[in-house]
Write a protein that binds this DNA or RNA. Sequence first.
DNA 1: TTGTACGCGTTATCAA
DNA 2: TTGATAACGCGTACAA
Lengths: 326, 326
Amino acid sequence: VPTIKDVADRAGVHAATASRALNSATRGMVNTRTVTRVLEAAKALGYAPNSAARSLRTRTSSVAGVIIPDLRNPVFPPIVRGIEDGLREAGYMALLGNTDGDVDRERELFDAMRGRQTDGFILATSRRDDELPATVPTVLVNRRTDTGAVPSVTADNDAGVRMLVRLLVELGHSRIGHVAGPRQLSTGWERYRAFVDAVGGAEAVTFAAAFTEEAGFEAALRLLDAHEGLTAIVAGNDLIALGCYAALASRGLRVPDDVSVTGFNDIPFADRQRPGLTTIRIPHYDIGLESARLLLARIANPTAPAKRIVLPVDLVTRGSTGPAKN
Amino acid sequence: VPTIKDVADRAGVHAATASRALNSATRGMVNTRTVTRVLEAAKALGYAPNSAARSLRTRTSSVAGVIIPDLRNPVFPPIVRGIEDGLREAGYMALLGNTDGDVDRERELFDAMRGRQTDGFILATSRRDDELPATVPTVLVNRRTDTGAVPSVTADNDAGVRMLVRLLVELGHSRIGHVAGPRQLSTGWERYRAFVDAVGGAEAVTFAAAFTEEAGFEAALRLLDAHEGLTAIVAGNDLIALGCYAALASRGLRVPDDVSVTGFNDIPFADRQRPGLTTIRIPHYDIGLESARLLLARIANPTAPAKRIVLPVDLVTRGSTGPAKN
DNA sequence: TTGTACGCGTTATCAA
DNA sequence: TTGATAACGCGTACAA
């Protein structure tokens, strides 16, 4: 494997000069003719810089750490894909890690990645009360913290829930319940707050332990037991909504004839459910893309104020919502 | 950020001793008491080794490159998750990249990752005729090459297709068609070969241009136009099967009353389709896990013969298959 | 069992 | 505009 020394020798210059010629930022200080000589030599030898040596010297790596709860949750693949494309625009690559929501594992991963000279982090794992170390550029994606001290890219949870409630009200529903996501997560909390605000009251609400179908099923049963006569349920996200489907079926209730159900996220295959799920489409890919760009901006200028980017959402009406009974 | 020197100073030893104490392979040469002193110092300072320096010195990085077509294809998330867990067992991390099936982009990614001191590669992008450079440890996942020169971990495509054909035959089907995946990919080709072998003839076959719903739809239309009276279709994978659903619907044919349909992979939500898809369950996660382990073995011993691991599959019978019409 | 000395490949600083 | 030199942090022969 050729080193910069080999390139320099072949071009008849010193290694330092070759380095300057090879690096576009410093190329200006080098004679045009020597630049071409160096570039030719590099090409002829198939030279590729040793990034370990470069990282050691410059303390940068062009690698970002991406930490998510679980790639198998269908929200994340398109987000991660967007992140990767955004990073690539600047020659960055993504080091990926899953935590399964385990705080210790997150800490471990974070440290391990930082040890690998990661230039920054994109986290999809944060809880509302997280205190994140301000030592390394970090961006939150999909979720955020209460303080807003860390830059974030999220979907407009508030507007989304309002759209859903408005739709249900227009369909004649007045007894609307909410199976919320976890309180500790901004996604769960913001949607809950928006729901309470939109319907003007917080009676008919239960919280699911996680954004999963199982937790949604369990919380939906609790909701149904505590509140008779609900004609609609706003679920914290699509997976919880599917849990609601199952809970309603187990109680002999039909969707949407007896109870309408809505989700949030519009995950792949939400349209294929039985019935198709009325939900809020969030721009998964763009959320990822923007978070990558925000991180890159952050790396370039770490002291800039923490931006919060909120992307607009769309209502997608499908078969799971219908006119209120009676 | 503390260096090994800081740890050594705090423990009252030389940096070399600290290095030996920190590294489990060389820990044996160090006095037990000094080991604990060093470890305590490291912990107290929150020491994390600088991997750039370590890479420069050892020429290894504990990072593997993982290259896939597109994370948004639902087969890949569980595989990638398995890969990550497998790599983690040995302290490795995954650098992830998507190619969208573009060969140039794959080449680019490969080079960029190699420049970042990647110790090895796991590729889910290979075509049957790929000639892969033998210079760096590489493992193929889900797909393989014809020569078998590169180690691979795949599902048992042959057995899977035979199970499907047997099921259909038992249901009384005799006019069975196949919408195959791309010929250039081992997944498409192996399933096609198994189909031809199992039904004893290759008349009723069309090839989809890609493993997507759209390509499946288009190829299914061609199949239906060329072959009247088919009562069952074996699709190259689940997404193609969903394309078949759409194509059959557009011709006014019902699944499974008029035509039975089968898939391959058992992607998430295959059970939620209308009707639920009869398919072959492949062990996505384990395929990823095993490929990571195989890569690690390969890195440890690059000259060992190229193993081919084929994992068993299961038949999952759902609503898309039924008795043949007369 | 521990310390000394050196080099991995690159780039920043200083001098020429 | 170029060359010489040092330093980034670590691991490992070799010496003690």
